[in-house]
Design a protein around this nucleic acid. Structure first.
Lengths: 206, 206
DNA sequence: CATATACGAGACTGAGCAGTTCCGGAAAGG
DNA sequence: CCTTTCCGGAACTGCTCAGTCTCGTATATG
């Protein structure tokens, strides 16, 4: 909702804009953002990575800030569908089912992007909202479904602090990646589920 | 160990360096770093904040990177002494005793500084080490003491994953501050202890 | 085929900033 | 009192980069 609207009903002359380049440029922007951070990211770098000219970038986004905002916002779609989540019948099964290489890679990229814009976010509410919507909320939403299911089937107490419990996994992963700089692997995630999340939910600790 | 050594045994001539300015400049650097992030921080800004000249800064630190490294490293001292921690006799008492305005403010500043250098840290191992030493490890160390005490007195099981449990509090606080952009208050910290950390440690969840 | 816009590539401009140097004055030592 | 190094302040230099513009070429409408 940043730039890409108002494209319809324009009887323009001349060569048409090649919209297949849009996602390629956004993706290049995210790559550079993840590698160098917001301030290290230059439009030349992004354009080169996308094999595009600088003018081609500025024809679509009016500024670097605008490009980054759109790039972050467009990560939102890359998530799992909330209606087609694994349903194993147990909270542990559901949580463990999410521990898969594609999911780990996805979350790793998101965290690198997040790291690149963290310092920006404090002074840019629009970017903060986009980042929350695209990077933070989807992950919590998945966990929220799992915990609600567990409550509904009576597996865990109904008065759990679900909002906090949803954050435990993402928070631990973010902390390990951004603060401790240790790569996240399957072993860590499983241990995190078994040693922290499930006991906190009142399971297995008995 | 960045610059301030080699000060001894130098029979120099002329006016002596005013070393009372050193911590003032470092503190100004941390303020600006927390407010604007690494790339937004300019030496002019730091010098102005410390009411110092730019030359006075560069006489002490050879570069911006060097100044930031030293500033971060020097935050290490501002921590509680591990030998004089509160000892209330229960894990909950110890954890709750750390929830005090000065401690919250301290941790807030550290997180703002961390936010300002996160994207830097991935490409600067020296800074990463300093940040870990000064911002991450001290907080974990405090929790480690509390959990070890609880194990020693038989309050909790001895086979707990203490390393992970130590991270839960800091991770949740960092997540809430940096990702969710919600200020941390006493209520959140207490709820975090009662709803997440203690249950995860096998207490109160029964 | 004329016109208008798109493309990649790259030159150009202007601002901001790291780092240096100079100033007038202060404090130390010889 | 002369020299040296410090101080705060400010001018200066050189580079990087956001954003603009131009060139040669491709592709659309009329």
């Amino acid at each position: 909702m940043t730039q890409t609207e108002q494209a319809e009903a324009r009887p323009r002359l001349g060569r048409k804009r090649d919209h297949t380049r849009d996602p390629e440029i956004l993706d290049a922007a995210l790559d550079v953002l993840a590698e160098t951070g917001y301030d290290g990211m230059t439009i030349d770098l992004v354009a080169a990575r996308a094999k595009a000219g600088k003018a081609t970038v500025y024809r679509r986004w009016s500024s670097k800030a605008d490009l980054v905002l759109d790039a972050v916002a467009c990560m939102k779609g890359s998530d799992l569908d909330l209606d087609s989540l694994p349903d194993t019948g147990t909270l542990r099964g559901d949580l463990v089912a999410m521990v898969k290489p594609p999911s780990i890679r996805d979350s790793e990229r998101k965290l690198k992007v997040m790291a690149g814009i963290v310092s920006m976010i404090a002074r840019n509410p629009e970017l903060a909202a986009a980042a929350h919507e695209a990077l933070v909320e989807p992950r919590a939403a998945v966990n929220r479904v799992f915990f609600q299911r567990a409550i509904d089937r009576g597996e865990v107490r109904a008065d759990l602090d679900v909002e906090k419990l949803c954050m435990v996994g993402p928070a631990m992963v973010a902390y390990r990646t951004l603060m401790l700089r240790i790569p996240v692997d399957r072993e860590f995630l499983i241990a995190n589920i078994d040693e922290i999340i499930l006991p906190a939910a009142g399971l297995r600790g008995a």
